Computed example of a mutant assay.
Amino acid sequence: MLWLVVISCLTQEAKSQEKNTGAIVSALKSHEKAVLVKDDIWIRDPYIVLGSDDYYYLTGTTQMPEVKFDDDTKYNVGLGDSSRVGWAVRVWKSKDLANWTYVGEPFDLSDGYWAEKEPTAFKNTSRGRWHLWAPELHVVGDKWVLIHTTPGPVKGGSNLALTTSKRLQKPYTFPLGDLAANLHDPSLFQDTDGKVYLIWANTKIVQLTADMTQFIGEPKAIHPSTLRQMPNGKQEPGIGHEGCTVLKIGDKYVLFGTGWSTNQGRKGSYNLYYAIADSIMGPYGPRKFVGRFLGHGTPFQDKDGKWWCTAFFNANVPPLERECIQTKDLSDNAYTINKQGVTLVPLEVKILDNGEIDIRAKDLDYAIPGPDEVQKL
């Protein structure tokens, strides 16, 4: 009779999973509140892109597959000597943003350009010190471009890897070679005219040649017209300090970037901001607020044209309850309401009559800046 009990338990588990997935699908359809779409992985900087095969692809900063997902690893912040950040790009795919299938690890640091060029650094550094951060996947032409940052084992050993076929798999070529070094949080943008741009740091941009082997001209700094008030009393240019990317919405170029609400490292909430320009090289207008707890998120449109932003756990303590969060001052530490995993937060993106773009999170717990926000909004 034991097998009957096991089957019964499995059936109950399947029903529960189906119920949970149904709730996620319903919440995504309503496009009103934040939705936790994947809660079984440790992830930072989640990135979602729609592939040419009509699947959404998800990647991000992750631990290695063999690291057990438990209370010990769940809220590891990924920083410092206790970091559990791995050295592989892990990928999931989904047709509906609710049901995710693991694709595997199509790339790891041993597959990269720097492993070929500086093998001794890899050989002499334990894999526990290899860390691959903030990978992104882009479809350019009929190839995949995989790009990421990394602090080791080669310092500044970021990679821009290009597939040799339509499939997201080895082998890769590395068209930029040494030019891919020292790119913090690199991102790609392909304009409607086909031109491809590389974006990194806070914020540098350069156009790439069609084969992505060279820069066209010198990298340029782009930033909002307004300055940020820093803790030392100085005002500085910049959209934030990391997680920058560019999208084209309507006829405008939108620069997104990430910063802590207090403009101090790991103090307050990790937020997403934006600025708008008529040309990708600027000048950009004032820094505006997208949402609280959305730092290093990916704004993207789903198949139905709805806008979302990925969100993730980034704090020094477990996530806060959402009750009264809109009026809670978070300036004494790093806090979030995001649970571990991937949360999708609905965005309202408006193209105004004058052509300007207005972007804001729809869920009020993300849409309203907290009292710890130093920028006047």
Rank of each mutant, 00 (worst) to 15 (best):
1 M>I: 13
9 C>M: 11
10 L>N: 10
17 Q>D: 07
27 A>V: 03
31 H>Q: 06
36 L>H: 10
39 D>G: 15
44 R>Q: 06
47 Y>E: 09
51 G>D: 10
58 L>T: 03
58 L>H: 11
62 T>M: 14
63 Q>D: 10
66 E>S: 15
75 Y>L: 11
83 S>F: 12
86 G>N: 02
86 G>E: 07
92 W>I: 01
92 W>M: 04
94 S>W: 09
98 A>P: 11
99 N>G: 01
102 Y>C: 08
107 F>I: 01
109 L>G: 02
123 K>C: 04
124 N>K: 15
126 S>F: 02
127 R>L: 10
127 R>Q: 14
131 H>G: 04
139 V>P: 03
143 K>F: 12
148 H>E: 05
157 G>D: 14
158 S>Q: 03
167 R>K: 14
170 K>P: 07
178 D>I: 08
178 D>V: 07
178 D>M: 11
179 L>E: 09
180 A>G: 14
180 A>W: 00
183 L>P: 04
188 L>T: 00
189 F>K: 01
199 I>T: 11
200 W>S: 09
200 W>F: 09
204 K>W: 11
204 K>M: 15
207 Q>P: 06
208 L>H: 01
214 Q>M: 10
216 I>E: 15
218 E>D: 15
233 G>T: 12
237 P>I: 07
241 H>M: 04
251 D>W: 13
255 L>N: 07
257 G>P: 05
264 Q>C: 07
264 Q>R: 14
265 G>S: 11
281 M>Q: 10
282 G>N: 06
282 G>K: 05
283 P>L: 02
288 K>W: 12
293 F>T: 00
297 G>L: 00
302 D>E: 09
303 K>A: 06
309 C>Q: 02
318 P>Q: 11
318 P>S: 08
324 C>S: 15
327 T>W: 02
331 S>Y: 05
331 S>F: 03
332 D>W: 11
333 N>P: 08
339 K>W: 00
344 L>K: 00
349 V>D: 14
358 D>Y: 13
359 I>Q: 09
365 D>H: 01
369 P>G: 09
376 K>T: 13
